[in-house]
């Protein structure tokens, strides 16, 4: 019939499954549609790696804050206004000339949402999850990072309870930068540990 074309495209099977879940749970008043929208808005628009970058920049410029951050990350991060789901038990691990930290979740995709937002696709891949522990140097090489042999690579496996954030090394030639300018240099990948923070002058990683 000609008017078949007037009707709507049926969504994919997976989209229909989600619609079924949502409508049944809303109907039973187990979830509220406005609350669901607010969650999506928060994660799409309000949180992301800029939050973590501010934490890192503060730690670089304020040694007292940095000491608090390494001693009790959850509280120190909350001082900057970041906390909540998947950030309740934070641990910050500090990179140093002879230590490079790498974060993974081998079981699924645990990740510090309040400071980094939602994880990138590669973080959730089976390849990254399985190889980060077995062959961290191989994984880092794929990200273009080759720490010298005398640098210890520490791999931190996240759990449903504990989430890790890497405090990268402050790059050279940044003494003149403000905290806000420093935050601009800090990338998501450097806080997962698959990158370092590049110096603004040379572009070379620290």
């Amino acid at each position: 019939m000609a008017d078949d074309h007037e009707h709507q495209t049926v969504p994919s099977d997976i989209a229909l499954r989600v619609k079924a879940l949502e409508s049944v749970l809303v109907e039973k008043e187990m979830v509220d549609r406005a609350e669901l929208d607010a969650v999506v808005d928060t994660y799409e628009n309000r949180i992301g790696p800029r939050n973590g970058a501010r934490v890192v920049a503060r730690a670089w410029t304020d040694p007292v804050y940095k000491a608090r951050l390494l001693a009790n990350a959850t509280e120190a991060i909350a001082e900057l206004g970041y906390g909540g789901a998947q950030g309740e038990h934070m641990v910050v691990v500090e990179n140093a000339p002879k230590v490079h930290n790498l974060v993974v979740c081998t079981l699924c995709s645990c990740y510090p949402w309040p400071t980094l937002g939602l994880p990138p696709v590669w973080y959730k891949s089976a390849g990254y999850r399985s190889r980060a522990v077995i062959d961290p140097r191989g994984v880092l090489r794929e990200f273009g990072l080759e720490p010298p042999d005398d640098v210890e690579i520490r791999v931190w496996d996240s759990t449903a309870e504990i989430r890790y954030l890497v405090l990268p090394e402050r790059p050279a030639d940044t003494e003149h930068l403000t905290e806000a300018e420093l935050a601009e240099l800090v990338t998501r990948d450097s806080m997962i540990g698959v990158a370092t923070v590049a110096s603004p002058r040379t572009g070379d990683a620290a």
Partner: peptide, 28 residues
């Protein structure tokens, strides 16, 4: 649908229908 599914899990857990540990176990 990905955003909707994400929000459903976060909201249900937030309301105590399951713990996040249970969620991580199911996803794993």
């Amino acid at each position: 649908w990905q955003a909707q599914a994400f929000a459903l899990a976060v909201t249900l857990s937030g309301q105590g229908h399951f713990t996040w540990k249970e969620w991580a176990g199911a996803l794993a």
